[in-house]
């Protein structure tokens, strides 16, 4: 009788678990991008700083021409291992619109660490007008905002190929097997040697894609390392406390049984 109940309960929990996992994961479409091994995967994962810094270079030299990252400030880059002077220097390379000054005029000034990443376009309409009517999405949360996360972003950047026969690719579009609907407005952004690395890393397409994805993963979840570090401590603490509570419960109930 008792055993029977336990089995029933376990079956019920398993079913609930099954539905919970099936729910959010459902409704994938197109080819699912293959899983990659990322430095930030797993319970103890951290962002590969060198890769993320190279990824920032790729963003700056390639992506930033069209894509904004307006949730990030230059000061956030210090988390990637840039020191204060480097952050200031990076910020100073951009022009930021400020004002009004005492005459009521807007003016341009060099960027400061507290400034947000400067957007390539003044507004969404300007962005659409320059890109065949399609607004290039903001990249701040890209790995969180797509099913498949980092694997999808990497897959997309490396997933350009010739359209299979019978598929017509309209002007200004490209064929990408991982994109929903397969026709993507973004031309292949990366190629071998798209960016010249200063640390001697071989500038292949795959390397660029890996680096920019690491950078974007950090940009989307800058709290991830702190979160995982704290998580271990919290869970260990809770395990100990729960163990003690169980012992207390046993002790209290002992004289009843």
């Amino acid at each position: 009788m008792h055993m029977n109940k336990i089995i029933k309960s376990l079956v019920a929990l398993a079913l609930v678990g099954g539905v919970l996992t099936a729910g959010p994961a459902g409704a994938a479409e197109g080819t699912r991008a293959p899983k990659q091994s990322w430095s930030f995967n797993g319970l103890f994962g951290t962002f590969d700083r060198a890769a993320a810094q190279r990824g920032f270079q790729v963003y700056k030299e390639v992506c930033a021409g069209c894509h904004s990252m307006n949730l990030l400030s230059y000061r956030h880059l210090s988390q990637l291992g840039f020191n204060e002077e480097e952050v200031k220097a990076i910020a100073a390379t951009v022009e930021v619109k400020d004002g009004p000054d005492s005459d009521g005029e807007m003016f341009d000034r060099p960027g400061l660490p507290a400034d947000r990443f400067v957007s390539p376009f003044a507004n969404a309409n300007a962005a659409a007008a320059s890109n065949n009517g399609k607004v290039p999405p903001d990249l701040s949360l890209m790995t969180k905002a797509r099913i498949g996360g980092a694997d999808y972003v990497y897959g997309l950047l490396t997933g350009y190929e010739d359209a299979p026969s019978g598929v017509e690719v309209p002007d200004g579009g490209s064929y990408n097997k991982y994109f929903s609907g397969q026709i993507i407005a973004m031309a292949p952004p990366l190629s071998d040697e798209a960016v010249e690395y200063t640390d001697g890393t071989k500038p292949t397409l795959a390397q660029h894609a890996k680096d920019i994805t690491t950078f974007l993963a950090w940009a989307a979840e800058p709290e991830m390392e702190a979160r995982k570090r704290m998580g271990i401590k919290v869970l260990l603490f809770l395990l100990v406390l729960t163990g003690m509570l169980y012992a207390v419960k046993r002790k209290v109930w002992e004289d009843l049984h």
């Binding site: 603490f237 809770l238 100990v240 406390l241 003690m244 509570l245 012992a247 207390v248 002790k251």
Partner: peptide
């Protein structure tokens, strides 16, 4: 001892 230590751990947490 068990009760007091458990309560202390819970309070610290």
């Amino acid at each position: 001892f068990l009760f007091v230590s458990t309560a202390s751990v819970a309070a610290v947490g």
